[in-house]
Design a binder for these strands. Sequence first.
DNA 1: CGCGGCTTTGATGTTCATCAAGTAAAGTGG
DNA 2: CCACTTTACTTGATGAACATCAAAGCCGCG
Lengths: 231, 231
Amino acid sequence: MSEDINTGNCDSCIYKSILFEGLSSEELRIINHNKTVRIFSKGEYICHEGDEIKRFICLKEGLVKLYREGKSRHEHIISIARPMDFIGLLGIFSNSNYLYSIVAIEDSDLCLIDLESIKSIIKSNGTFALNILEKMSSVSDQVLQIQIDLAGKQLRGRIAYIILLFANQIYKTNRFDLPISRKEIGDLIEMRTENVIRILSEFRKDKLLKIEGKTIEVLDMELMKKISELG
Amino acid sequence: MSEDINTGNCDSCIYKSILFEGLSSEELRIINHNKTVRIFSKGEYICHEGDEIKRFICLKEGLVKLYREGKSRHEHIISIARPMDFIGLLGIFSNSNYLYSIVAIEDSDLCLIDLESIKSIIKSNGTFALNILEKMSSVSDQVLQIQIDLAGKQLRGRIAYIILLFANQIYKTNRFDLPISRKEIGDLIEMRTENVIRILSEFRKDKLLKIEGKTIEVLDMELMKKISELG
DNA sequence: CGCGGCTTTGATGTTCATCAAGTAAAGTGG
DNA sequence: CCACTTTACTTGATGAACATCAAAGCCGCG
């Protein structure tokens, strides 16, 4: 990783006040000296399923997908994560190797912090420990919640659910550019590409959505919510 | 809860060496004074979806199911948990109220520890904090893993998966009594009761299983594994 | 310019939920 | 303890939902 850089100190980091609040200057120094900051290009792997977990992954800017290769079938996307989603916490304290791969789906700005340093600070700083605990609990909840929500729905409901997730959670606007392909949507909500397309077309014909390539606009938010909930 | 009791000190508890190892005698005293030990009968609720989370739930003996009421559909069982599964850790640090209900499906021996006491010890004891972190990471992983595994399978594969989970993970024997009804199996792996029965019958006809009411015996473990993986 | 991956639509068959109907088992009240 | 009610279990038939197959247009990239 010759292109690794270590610029800026943690004072200017968005995570300073959220994750590292209350750390002593010595603890911050440890973090600062054991981190790597780097931009990952769209499509680049941040970690591979099976790799040893050595660093705590912090997404500062961008968008990533976290997925697992199915043994029998195609890949299954577990989560699309933004900064502040703390997706890097998933499973890192119970496994020595990653159970999934993480790939940048937009150019992304990452901070990789040595995991042993994090652990040593957890041991010495209870407030930090509780903070990490809360974040981990939260990210696990969120990811699990989505899996459970999707499990009970049929295709139209799943598409509505994921469209709303992009519109309300990720981009916070009715009109946005899908960051992933139709095929990847299928991998995310467990359905065939053809059916993703078919149902998007149906929603277009029913004036629920306006679709231009990757650009989606939600026209009837209320009906969309109903389909998502009941579907 | 007039029947609450607080018998035995933590020294004789199965969790002593696993969860509370390294606690000072003062910390153990806090736990001991802020816990409630009680037997919950089969069918009894341990917590309800929506209840405020006040206590850390420790399953000492027995079997519980953790589930969520679907808004539109029937209930969805998230996990069947034994002692040592640390199911009580799911979501308790990120929510003030339970996202699910927990019910005893066998007579179960529980220890309920005041959550604030646990949190205060986390703050003062880093090793304990890291220990909790590992257990939480582990239980989240396990639960999520099952949801993801099931998502990609069709009915025969799901039934095989859940039968193997009971045989290998929970009871660790080829022959066991199902602790839940056919309907509950359906709620656990997201399929209709009728199809649970139908596929169990198929497996019986194909000499994969021997079935007598609730008693199940796996006759062909290898083929079962294949169906589970490929299904 | 041609190749491969993404997108789209249509046709077809499989998988599964739903409906229906009946038997067995388990709890309930007199 | 027995009639009664309810709940669990089981099988078959039917249609809806969905995967799969096929074919063609599109787009970006070497």
